[in-house]
Amino acid sequence: MNALAPIPFTPRATVALYLREARLEFLRLLRTPAFSVPTLVFAPMFYLLFGVLLNRGNAGASSYLMATYSVFGVIGPGLFGFGVGLAIDRERGLLTLKRVQPVPAAAPLLAKVAMAMIFAACIGAMLLVAGVTLGGVQMTPSQAALLLCVDILGVMPFCALGLLIGTLVNGSGAPAVVNLIYMPMALLSGLWLPLRLLPAVVEQIAPLWPAWHLSQLALKIVGQDSGRPVWMHVAVMLAFTAICLFLAQRRLQRA
Rank of each mutant, 00 (worst) to 15 (best):
D225Q: 09
E25D: 14
P141Q: 07
H213A: 08
W231R: 10
P44E: 11
L161V: 08
L54D: 11
Q101A: 12
D225W: 08
V178G: 04
V236S: 09
I75R: 00
L134I: 07
C149H: 04
V103H: 00
F246L: 15
L24S: 02
L128H: 03
S215P: 08
E203G: 10
A116K: 01
A200V: 08
G60E: 06
N2K: 14
L188F: 15
F35A: 11
A116D: 04
L168E: 05
Q224I: 10
G83N: 06
G227W: 14
L164F: 14
A5G: 15
L30M: 13
S215T: 09
P184M: 07
L198R: 04
L65N: 10
F46L: 15
D151Y: 05
M45C: 11
L110F: 11
R28F: 11
L161T: 03
I221Y: 09
A107C: 03
L109Y: 15
S189Y: 05
L97M: 08
L97C: 07
L163N: 07
M237E: 06
Q224A: 13
A5M: 15
I221K: 01
L29F: 10
L214K: 01
R92A: 10
A239L: 14
P207R: 08
P210Y: 08
I181Q: 03
L146Q: 12
N55Q: 15
I7T: 14
F119G: 04
I181C: 02
A22F: 03
L53V: 14
G135N: 12
M185W: 04
L208V: 13
G166S: 07
R254A: 15
L94Y: 10
P229T: 10
G83K: 05
A125K: 06
V71C: 03
Y69R: 05
H233W: 04
E203R: 03
P102G: 05
L191Q: 00
L94I: 10
M237N: 12
L193N: 09
A130M: 07
L48I: 12
W192V: 13
M117E: 03
V222E: 11
G223Q: 15
G154D: 02
L54S: 13
P207H: 11
P104W: 08
G93D: 03
L168G: 07
I165T: 07
L128S: 04
C149Y: 05
G171I: 01
L153A: 08
G85K: 06
H233F: 05
G83C: 06
A186Y: 07
V177A: 14
R196N: 12
L219E: 06
P175T: 04
S172P: 03
A111T: 04
L161G: 06
Y69I: 05
A87Q: 01
R196Y: 11
A13V: 02
P199M: 04
P44I: 10
L148D: 01
G73E: 00
V202N: 09
G136W: 12
E203K: 05
L48Y: 08
R90W: 01
N170F: 10
R228D: 14
V71P: 00
M115C: 12
L195G: 09
L191K: 01
L40K: 11
K112W: 03
V230D: 09
A144V: 14
Y47R: 11
R20N: 01
